[in-house]
Design a protein around this nucleic acid. Structure first.
Lengths: 116, 116
DNA sequence: AAATATACATAATTTTCTTATGCATAAGTT
DNA sequence: AACTTATGCATAAGAAAATTATGTATATTT
């Protein structure tokens, strides 16, 4: 038995899930849900864990908005739903990334005004 | 008549209001609500507008959690509620700022893995 | 045989915000 | 004098986006 302290899932991640999903799909062409959770865990060295309750509704919403296309596959007798960016999805990815950069700049102006 | 386009209040700000409040109080000793809204507008060059519906409940909550002390004053026959950090508030400010730095680092690892 | 990993999904609840509304005084404008 | 904008607080209704808790099912590891 061991104790694990993780600072993960700070409140700040709220609102950035869509950006994360879109960016990953922009890099990896197509991915399925579980793969996304693992990739995020890997890239953030375990610091950020995307929960299923957040991820799947987000994917469905992005699909409903026409930003993602879905394609179902069966691998090892298990279902996988591969998502990929639509044309609009690619455009929106650029917007989201710009928004994120802007957000980071703004926050730095707030918490570290000397560097602004 | 003119049209004003502001990218302000993007969804990403969700979760960072407390950090902003605490950091400003950490720098300015004591501030009142309206002053905070104006300071944020100034520091972000109008890009971020803290709404009253978000600010006042947040201040009340931080006070209830023992992170802020409040002191009422009357200036020009108008009420002001000055908030300042408690000892715990100062500690929590450090935590929040570290969390923010961590968040920014993590997001940069996600959206720009080459630099990680 | 049992536990963990893979893979999806949804419902209930909570948190945190926006929008709308309300009260009140001071200062500036028409 | 009347009206608008600025200053200053507050709360309620609703929306958005997460967490937590469940549920189903197969594959792999212990």
């Amino acid at each position: 038995m061991y104790i694990c302290i993780v600072m993960s899932n700070s409140k700040l991640y709220k609102g950035s899930l869509n950006t994360i999903i879109l960016k990953l799909l922009n890099e990896n062409d197509k991915m399925y849900g579980y793969e996304i959770t693992q990739k995020v865990k890997e890239l953030t060295k375990g610091e950020l864990k995307i929960t299923e309750g957040a991820l799947y509704p987000a994917l469905h919403k992005l699909e409903a908005e026409g930003l993602l296309d879905v394609e179902v596959a069966k691998v090892d007798n298990r279902l996988r739903k591969y998502y990929k960016l639509t044309e609009n999805g690619t455009k929106e990815t650029a917007n989201k990334l710009e928004e994120l950069a802007e957000y980071i700049k703004t926050m730095q102006a707030l918490v570290n005004p000397k560097l602004a």
